[in-house]
């Protein structure tokens, strides 16, 4: 077996050259691109991990802010509810007071209106009574009614105290004559009758000045300087009205 040393040497050099060529133009570029891709993938993964960490941090911060906002919202809502409750209470109290005041005013107005209506009713009743009495009186003989009122007047005079009756005398003596007011003019006979009856009642002669006042309705009225003695329908109606008013106020 023969070994060609030149061939051995040349083949050794050839293989070494091939090692250099393939290493330079094949293996190194391919491994470099693979390493570069791996490096980029690693970098991308690191970036993704960093982005994930940032996102987690941001999410934590957002959660914290959301919780803070929720807390503030709850506080504001509770404060608003408390203010609304207080406002409602104030409004209810004011409204209650106004309602009570309006109710009291309404009650007073109703009371005043009722009183006015009753007053008007009494006026109408009084007027109606006077009309009725006048119509009834007109059916009686005038002298009968007159004499009845005259007797009543005399009885009233007699019921006066002695001092009061004496006042009539004193007044007459001082020139202030007593007036006898009737609802219609009296004739001489009636005047004489009246003067006699009154003198008898007061116990002395009392000069009278006769006057007429249709408003009396019927009856007489003796007016002294300090004392008035009435016995007529107007006086009676006023007394009745006064009695009715007292009963209503009682």
């Amino acid at each position: 077996m023969h070994i060609d040393w030149w061939t051995l040497a040349l083949q050794t050099v050839n293989v070494l050259i091939l090692v250099w060529i393939l290493g330079r133009f094949f293996f190194r570029p391919v491994m470099a691109i693979v390493a570069q891709r791996q490096e980029q993938a690693t970098k991308l993964l690191a970036d993704a991990e960093a982005a994930r960490q940032d996102a987690q941090t941001a999410r934590g911060e957002a959660d914290r802010l959301r919780a803070e906002v929720d807390g503030q919202r709850r506080t504001l809502v509770e404060a608003a509810q408390e203010a609304a409750r207080a406002e409602k209470k104030t409004l209810v109290e004011e409204t209650s007071r106004e309602i009570a005041k309006m109710r009291a005013d309404a009650a007073a107005a109703v009371k005043r209106e009722e009183e006015a209506e009753q007053e008007a009713l009494l006026q109408r009743v009084g007027g109606l009574s006077v009309d009725i009495a006048g119509r009834l009186l007109s059916r009686l003989p005038p002298d009968v009614a007159f004499r009845a009122f005259l007797d009543g007047l005399c009885a009233e005079i007699r019921s006066l105290s002695a001092e009061t009756r004496e006042d009539f005398r004193v007044s007459a003596a001082s020139g202030r004559q007593a007036e006898l007011v009737t609802a219609f003019p009296l004739g001489d006979a009636d005047r004489e009758l009246v003067s006699g009856k009154i003198a008898e009642a007061v116990g002395f002669d009392l000069p009278l000045v006769f006057r007429e006042d249709a408003a009396l309705g019927a009856g007489l009225e003796l007016r002294g300087a300090t004392t008035v003695v009435r016995n007529n329908w107007r006086a009676d109606l006023e007394r009745i009205r006064g009695e009715l008013g007292r009963d209503r106020h009682a």
């Binding site: 070994i3 060609d4 061939t7 083949q11």
Partner: peptide, 8 residues
């Protein structure tokens, strides 16, 4: 050839 194998 043995020269090539020997070189390797």
């Amino acid at each position: 050839h043995i020269e090539t194998d020997a070189a390797l």
